[in-house]
């Protein structure tokens, strides 16, 4: 077992001729919780989506849970099994019930039988506090409930690592805390987490490290204490005054 959950070395990503990520170096240890923030368009989503190959990087290395992310399809599958992902828009499967959403991948990918998969799914649904909605369809749930299901669905794969891409940005304000509570609980259980979010309260509470990005580069990274009280870079200061200032 390697000590690192994620290891990114000198990674570059282009969309056509547009240089979206520039020489990214990033390490995430097992059990570590990282918050990534930065202005819109700075490449946060792109970075997190490169980690499970929803986007392909052009140069440099990405290693996840000791597996090198390269052209080998088995490696990609391996990494996707171990890294759960939660999206801004939930992306639940609308034609399946909540329970079916949660058992599909464990049954197909992990080859777990239905009874076992349903048992696990109900445990995680209880953990995100909506076991009673199991037989409903996503469209019948509120945004906050859907996002909690999305988290449960990812957890049902028993991942080693969870990636969050602005999980609360599409939610009505009154629903943000129910999702953050689940994420805090997950952090307390020792899950390795990489969260793109602008919830600075969450960052202070659970993050081991905050990473600030701008223009496709990692500008600065530090423990929350240092990051918020004593930012080094001018752009970090401007950004913080914008998100904290209001």
């Amino acid at each position: 077992m390697t000590e690192h959950a994620i290891l990114i070395r000198n990674m570059n990503k282009y969309y056509g001729s547009f240089h979206a990520l520039k020489n990214i170096d990033l390490e995430v240890k097992r059990g570590e919780r990282i918050v990534i923030c930065g202005p819109s368009g700075s490449g946060k989503s792109t970075l997190i989506r490169c980690i499970n190959r929803l986007e392909e990087h052009q140069s440099g290395d990405i290693e996840v849970m000791g597996t090198m992310l390269d052209e080998n399809v088995d490696h990609i599958d391996e990494i996707r099994r171990e890294a759960g992902m939660v999206f801004q828009n939930f992306n639940l499967f609308p034609h399946m019930t909540i329970l079916e959403n949660c058992i599909l991948a464990p049954m197909l990918v992990r080859k777990i039988d239905r009874v076992e998969a349903e048992k696990t799914a109900m445990e995680y649904l209880a953990r995100v506090k909506i076991p009673e909605q199991a037989s409903k369809y996503p469209g019948e749930l509120s945004g906050g409930q859907q996002q909690r299901v999305a988290i449960a669905r990812a957890l049902c794969m028993k991942p080693e690592l969870m990636l969050f891409d602005e999980p609360t940005s599409a939610l009505d304000p009154e629903m943000i805390s129910e999702v953050l509570d689940v994420m805090v609980g997950l952090a307390e259980d020792g899950m390795t987490m990489v969260c793109v979010t602008h919830e600075m309260g969450f960052a202070r509470q659970v993050a081991d490290r905050v990473v600030f990005m701008a223009d496709g580069q990692v500008i600065e990274q530090a423990e929350p204490e240092t990051f918020f009280e004593n930012p080094q870079n001018e752009r970090t200061k401007t950004f913080l005054s914008q998100v904290l200032g209001h």
């Binding site: 929803l54 992902m85 992306n91 639940l92 499967f93 599909l104 991948a105 197909l108 990918v109 794969m157």
Partner: peptide, 20 residues
């Protein structure tokens, strides 16, 4: 997002096509 969510769950091409 539908296909991406299925990819992120580790589902292969035929599973994504057939189930999602």
């Amino acid at each position: 997002g539908q296909e991406e969510a299925a990819k992120a769950l580790g589902m292969g091409y035929w599973h994504r096509i057939g189930y999602i």
